[in-house]
Simulated assay, not measured.
Amino acid sequence: METLITILAGVLVTVATYLILSKSLIRVILGTAILSHAAHLLILTMGSGLKSGSVPILGEGDGVFVDALPQALILTSIVISFAVTAVSLVLTYRTYQETGTDKLDELRGTKHE
């Protein structure tokens, strides 16, 4: 199962790289969002190893417990990446209102035809 999720994270990194290298500002933002999701999958897979176990509660006795730290880090990262994506989309929308385009070449002032 870890191999499948690692391959899925690799596919997401590939898609994100393709979108980030695009000339549209919306695609760049979507690429960074997909790249953060790939990082979340990779941290989850490598951090906890997709182990099955019980919740680490005192008084439960001895047994196999799952480490909750990677899950907490991923949850924090999801919230932060959502906020960054929302702010980026608002800035992109405002830029589109002011300039009338979302093409990166036109925003730089270098039109190539």
Rank of each mutant, 00 (worst) to 15 (best):
L4V: 12
A9D: 13
V11T: 15
V11L: 15
L12Q: 14
V13I: 15
V13E: 12
A16G: 15
L19Q: 15
I20K: 08
L21M: 05
K23T: 14
L25T: 07
L25Q: 06
L25R: 01
L25F: 10
I29P: 15
L30C: 09
I34Y: 08
I34C: 09
L35Q: 10
H37P: 07
H37Q: 14
H37M: 12
A38W: 00
A39I: 06
H40I: 09
H40T: 09
L41T: 15
L42R: 03
I43G: 07
T45C: 11
S48V: 09
S48L: 03
G49S: 03
G49T: 05
P56H: 05
P56W: 04
L58M: 07
E60N: 11
G63C: 00
V64L: 06
F65N: 14
V66R: 01
D67H: 02
L69N: 06
P70Y: 12
P70A: 00
Q71R: 07
L73A: 03
L75M: 12
T76P: 04
I78M: 05
S81L: 09
A83R: 00
T85Q: 08
A86Y: 00
V87C: 03
V87I: 13
S88I: 05
V90F: 08
L91I: 08
T92P: 12
T95N: 01
Y96H: 09
Y96K: 13
Q97L: 12
T99H: 05
G100D: 05
T101Q: 03
K103H: 06
L104D: 00
L107C: 03
T110H: 09
